[in-house]
Write a protein that binds this DNA or RNA. Structure first.
Length: 195
DNA sequence: ACATCGATCTACT
DNA sequence: GTAGATCGATGTA
């Protein structure tokens, strides 16, 4: 039994208010089928980015970079930033709105050796504890922008895990709308990017 | 055309 | 704790 055999969350899952989606994605499992093998990790930290939220890439209208955010829910929005890093989002809400959930951290479950190689470290808590690290560990880049998360390559499954207590904090690394409590993580989890 | 800055990470002090 | 990497998007001229 592998996470590959499990059914991806359906499109309807992503058609819900973005803050709820951010909370509901906690505890689910992100799966990437690569040529090297299957990589999977439990989502332990997310952030919501809303349409009328100055910190959201979509808040100033559609550009080539953020176009995927305005596409159908259940697709990936991957962007490149700081000249070095990629970040993975799941498009939520409804098509044309421009909202998404940033997947900030996962607990490595499967394909750990691949992740270690991709990241150049053996330390489990340093493999995917941050959005840039997560994409590097999972081998995600702009080629995956717009990919359908209900398909068979990159998807999210529910394995019945109980996320337990969810902590709510302000988002990391933003200047605008820094007071919004739209960051969520599993309380006490050691794989989050920050406590 | 040029300047600034970013949903980050690493290395170094 | 702070600086530097490094490039695309955006704002100003």
């Amino acid at each position: 039994m592998t996470y590959l055999d499990m059914r991806p969350l359906p499109r309807e899952f992503y058609v819900q208010p973005t803050v709820e989606a951010a909370r509901n994605l906690l505890g689910k499992v992100l799966v990437h089928r690569t040529e090297e093998g299957v990589i999977a990790g439990r989502i332990v930290e997310t952030e919501a980015y809303l349409r009328d939220d100055p910190a959201c890439h979509a808040s100033r209208g559609m550009t080539r970079r953020n176009a995927a955010m305005f596409g159908e829910p259940g697709r990936a929005y991957v962007y490149f930033t700081y000249g070095a890093h990629h970040c993975l989002n799941a498009v939520t809400s409804a098509e044309g709105v421009g909202e998404a959930v940033l997947i900030r951290a996962v607990e490595p479950l499967e394909g750990v050796e691949i992740m270690k190689r991709n990241r150049g470290t053996d330390e489990l808590t340093n493999l995917a504890s941050g959005p840039g690290k997560l994409c590097q560990a999972f081998g995600l880049d702009l080629r995956h922008n717009g990919l359908d998360l209900t398909g068979g390559e990159l998807f999210i499954v529910d394995d019945g895990f109980d996320p337990g207590e969810i902590a709510t904090r302000t988002r990391v690394g933003i200047r605008l709308a820094a007071d919004k409590p739209w960051r969520f993580y599993l309380a006490g989890n050691r794989f989050v990017s920050r406590k």
